[in-house]
Design a protein around this nucleic acid. Sequence first.
DNA 1: ACTGATTCCGAGTAACCACTCGGGTTTCTA
DNA 2: TAGAAACCCGAGTGGTTACTCGGAATCAGT
Lengths: 210, 210
Amino acid sequence: MTSAARPLRRAPKQARAQLRVNRILDAAEELFVEVGYDAAATNRIAFRAGASIGSLYEFFPNKQAVAQALADRYVDQLGAIIEERMVNDPERTGEQLVDSIVNALNDFWQRHPAVVPLLRGALGAPALLAAGEQLRVALVGHIETILLERRRDVDPARALLAAEITIDLTRTILERAQAEPAHRRPVVLRELKIAAVGYLRTAMPPPSSK
Amino acid sequence: MTSAARPLRRAPKQARAQLRVNRILDAAEELFVEVGYDAAATNRIAFRAGASIGSLYEFFPNKQAVAQALADRYVDQLGAIIEERMVNDPERTGEQLVDSIVNALNDFWQRHPAVVPLLRGALGAPALLAAGEQLRVALVGHIETILLERRRDVDPARALLAAEITIDLTRTILERAQAEPAHRRPVVLRELKIAAVGYLRTAMPPPSSK
DNA sequence: ACTGATTCCGAGTAACCACTCGGGTTTCTA
DNA sequence: TAGAAACCCGAGTGGTTACTCGGAATCAGT
């Protein structure tokens, strides 16, 4: 179930065009991180992708659509990753689950740094808030599902809130980890796990304490 | 000890000029929130401040300096607030201190919403990262001081890390609270306090447990 | 009241941006 | 292999932006 294709001026029919679209998204991803959304000129994006500005506008109606398509790609990829981590989840503890998901997200972050500014709506223009928000909602939904499956007796509203807080908290501290030199990252990550587990245990006390 | 005056093209000598500079900062604060840094044209900032574009560039060498001066103002104001909250701190519990500071920051956030995007380096251009980072360092320093004064035996490096995590965590969840409708904010804020207290208690166990 | 410093103004400038368009090239289909 | 469809190109266009500059208005000290 891949997310709906965004408004493309013309959907790519040939493999060659699809490749070009992917390269454009890759270039946009890089430039958004390097210089920010506003400063990432469409000309520069096209050039870095080895395409011309005309080709870019062949497939994207405007600049915003590029960021939107990038967000869609993230939603798909992250969804796949989280589901995979949930599948091979026989009977682990909450700590192990948190550990596994945090590590997975951290890997993804490192390979796709633009997901961070996009997710927090920090790509500059408020016009992009929708794209980031959509990605956030998707992630929150995944966590909410996990929480509800593990604690069928919990208040659904509480589960939703806890999922939102957990995502915000995770995003923030992962970001902090990325900002640190590589050798410090494990330290910060450990701190994130402490915070996440501590928070969830307080907010939704395990049934074992019942 | 007010922070050093930023590179002004010409420092205001007369009260009239100082007033104008303040009005310009107020206008910039509003526009940064409403439309973001890049879309906040210097002409618009000047117009909203009731000044002309020429006046703006009389005191600020470029657009970035406006944001920088705004950050300086925040550093001063926030520093005063936190110190005030620390002074009337006879022998309260950690929970009460967290509660007090979170409430103070939340009030400030509500009156100065631009502090959020500035603090997280989300005002668009990466060029502004320095201004936001400076503000963050100032806040972290305050928290670090509090932690060290309350637990003189703790590892200083650990206190610094904990202060950083706490600030990130607070900023993020306050942001989430601001994004919610007003009647939901207390709920989210309560969640923040749970997370903060829970984290600090885990990371730096109280001496009472010794 | 005089004068120099300070403040204020806003049309103008050069640079840059998102996006268009007309036409060439490659791939598909029959 | 011919024609159509898909793809690709990049100079050009209209609009916006940060910032300048020459001079007018206002102030402070004498």
